[in-house]
Amino acid sequence: MTATRTEDQAAPARRSALRKALDTIGVQNVSLIIALAGLVALIGSQNSRFFLTSNIKIIGMAVAVTGVLAIAQTIIIILGALDISVGSVAGLASVTSAMIFTAMSSNAGLGILGALAVGALCGAANGCIVVFGRVNPIIATLATLAAFKGLAQLVSNGRAQGYTGADPVFVFIARGSIAGIPTLMWIFALVALGAHILLKYTDIGRNIYAIGGNDTAARLSGININKYIVACYIGTGVVAALAGILITARTGSGQPISGSEGQELEAITAAALGGVSFKGGRGAIAGTVLAVVLLGVLSNGMTLLDINSFWQNVAKGALLVLAVTIQQARSGERRVGIPT
């Protein structure tokens, strides 16, 4: 006990309380919170329905699919890679879950398990192409983005599959709630919490940051970086499949394209807005969660205020450029060439 005391004092940390709070939350997160607060105040002042519990639930349910994908994307970007195939994996998992569900005489559990397994396989394929085929992550997952989408269309003949809208499990996922909070929000929250704990408190998380920050140093420090890359892609595949299951539950059938197409870009947008560095090694789940909520509020608010949905896309794009520009200006990097 006494020994601990003295050794702790070997590393004194004397900073002002404000500075310390700022460091803990992170400047990036503080600016996201300020932006969110501003947006909430603006929308709320124009339309009081915004603050209704029912509307908050609508926002929470709307962001769940993008949210879980953004969480997985955050981990893979911190690792120093990228996965743009997640939307296609979600689509493939969505039709798989519905088709197995139908084939197994309405067994939702088997449908879900089968979809997750397909997601894991897709992720393993991505990881192996990157590690053993030596293909750049962007190109590798660009290829599988096309290939997995094609597979989803092949197995489904391009049509929505099965009918899960009457199954109690799928209905619970889509519209149920626990303790008054919608199941979809619970799922997003649990995935986020799990990822946060993984990154922040386990040696696995530390090693992920190390690989993204300096892969040579990580390798020489005895981290099996190939194993980590493949495992992270498998994890991302499983989460993408989870997103696909949510799509099946919400639409009542397996969707090869609809609901999942373009989700990869939404997820990457949220991660970038949340301050995850595309160089790898820097970023956190909290930022991504805030960004997901911010994007959800933006979209919901503009709908409530009856703004043309085309403007929503413009606003989203403008927000991302603004956020990253501010972030880069703070880094003080010289304005020469293509930034990394």
């Binding site: 940051y209 920050g213 300096n214 040579t216 140093a217 020489l220 090694g281």
Partner: peptide, 16 residues
């Protein structure tokens, strides 16, 4: 390039 995680803390670098 071969050993340090420049953006991470002394603690994270030592315990890696």
């Amino acid at each position: 390039s071969g050993a340090l995680l420049m953006g991470r803390s002394v603690k994270d670098n030592v315990s890696l």
